[in-house]
Design a protein around this nucleic acid. Structure first.
Length: 423
RNA sequence: GGAGAGGUGCCUGAGAGGCCGAAAGGAGCAGUUUGCUAAACUGUCGUACGUGUUAAAGCGUACCGAGGGUUCGAAUCCCUCCCUCUCCGCCA
């Protein structure tokens, strides 16, 4: 969430930035500022009274010790008289703080200066494109037909076991999954990311820390009996490693990567966009996460973008990079690059990665700070990106590399699969 | 799942109604000593909010797992919850 101090000191700036996300934040900001003013008044009053109580309590103790019972008793009454007011003020303070927080979490992150204005995905800016788009002949099949032909992904079987959106990978399909995961993890390792294997169920606090809760709980599967949530991305457990943590400045950047399955309810999405591997309830993803010094986080973002580009290049998939416009960015991001891969039979660009700088937005929620020397702790910047999400990569690989003799795999992963083609 | 023990600052660990934001040691940081390393000594060493300020210092308040309660006064007493550890059972 945004920092109160920023809201207070640079109100107009905040409003102007949020306008890029097409949000008129003025009503909320005004409410925040006015609640905050009340809050400070109440706290001042309350602190003063508490101070009186503390002073009296000390005096009572001393009086009793020196045997002056009567005087002590008299003072006691004085303190008792304050009690009701103290209780009232302190209730008031608590509710003001809650109110303040409620308003504050409504405000999305401010987009950085580089974010283009715009409302819809059409307004996203294509900043890079590479790789020739394959031209397949008319008999080219979409990936779900190829998957069925070679019996490597079974969507119907997934429906039987669980439901739609939970495919079963079989034989070379399953091996391909494993190969891609290992390949991505190895590449992340080479780039200096430390591998993490986190829990894939998390508690409420973690969901809140990265911003899925309280608002987007409909997107997560919820294990009600134990109050756990299935993670929608490894970002949740991995970033929450740093919840309530103060890292040393010299330890920055912290670079972590993790493979996890991801679970998304995707309530309300049906139709041909969800055909095959295009949109699933369970999928595999390798995520890269960094905690970085505020001065360096945008260089880091570029570095992460380059890492993802390198993966797609190695897989010989045509891709483009989009800088998301204000209207299409996520709630907590300050700047996001999406990667899309061209899936030649569907003739569609499929999103396979999203790389974002959250600046202090998540850090503020999580109280993730760094400390230089003996200075006061300062909020760090957090970044993350998919490197990569598997299903749409697999879709593009199957479609783009189909031949009459089978699907020919790119060199980069042959050492991992142990086979060159799916047939 | 059953029985017991316990949750205190960066760590170890004392405190068992007022003298406790909290002993002591370690780590860290700054300095002294030293040819260097090591050691020794001295000092410093939590966070948040409020106030103050150009900035700070300072001052106030809160925090000893969480939330309630008793009391003039709670880390300390009472209640509820959460978590961890040990033993037993079950088990990949």
């Amino acid at each position: 969430m945004l920092q109160l101090a920023t809201l207070r000191e640079r109100t107009d700036f905040v409003l102007q930035r949020l306008a890029v996300k097409n949000i008129d934040a003025k009503p909320v900001v005004d409410r925040v500022l006015s609640i905050d003013e009340d809050r400070r008044k109440v706290q001042m009053e309350l602190d003063q009274l508490l101070n009186q109580q503390n002073t009296i309590a000390k005096q009572v103790g001393e009086l009793y010790k020196s045997g002056k019972k009567a005087e002590g008793d008299e003072l006691k009454n004085k303190s008792t008289a304050l009690k009701q007011t103290v209780a009232e003020l302190s209730d008031r303070l608590t509710s003001l703080e809650e109110e303040l927080n409620q308003e504050l979490v409504k405000l999305p992150n401010m987009p950085s200066e580089r974010v283009p204005k715009g409302k819809t995905p059409e307004d996203n800016e294509v900043v890079h494109q590479e790789g020739a788009l394959p031209s397949l002949d008319a008999s080219a099949k979409p990936h779900w037909e190829i998957a069925a032909q070679y019996d490597i992904i079974d969507f119907e079987l997934g429906v039987k076991l669980t439901g739609a959106g939970f495919p079963v990978y079989k034989g070379k399909g399953a091996k391909l999954q494993r190969a891609l995961i290992n390949y991505f993890l190895d590449k992340a390792g080479e780039a200096g990311y430390r591998e993490i294997q986190p829990p894939i169920l998390v508690n409420k606090d973690s969901g809140y820390g990265t911003g899925q809760l309280p608002d987007k709980d409909a997107q997560m599967y919820h294990v009600q009996l134990d109050e756990f949530y299935l993670i929608p991305t490894a970002e949740v457990p991995v970033t929450n490693i740093f919840r309530d943590v103060i890292v040393k400045a010299e330890e920055l950047p912290v670079k972590l990567c993790a493979y996890t399955p991801c679970f998304r309810r995707e309530a309300g999405s049906y139709g041909k966009d969800v055909r095959g591997l295009n949109r699933l309830h369970q999928f595999d993803k390798v995520e890269i996460v960094q905690v970085q010094h505020p001065d360096k986080s945008y260089d880091t973002l570029d570095e992460m973008v380059e890492h993802v580009a390198g993966l797609l290049r190695a897989l010989q998939l045509p891709f483009r990079i989009l800088r998301l416009c204000g209207g299409d960015m996520s709630f907590s991001s300050a700047l996001t690059y999406d990667f899309e891969v061209y899936s030649a039979a569907q003739k569609k660009w499929l999103e396979v990665s999203s790389v974002s700088n959250f600046e202090t937005f998540q850090a503020n929620r999580m109280k993730l700070r760094y400390r230089a020397g003996t200075d006061k702790p300062v909020l760090a910047h957090t970044l993350n990106g998919s490197a990569l999400a598997l299903p749409r990569i697999v879709a593009a690989l199957l479609e783009n590399n189909q031949t009459p003799e089978g699907v020919v795999l790119p060199d980069a992963i042959r050492a991992y699969t142990g086979f060159d083609r799916i047939d």
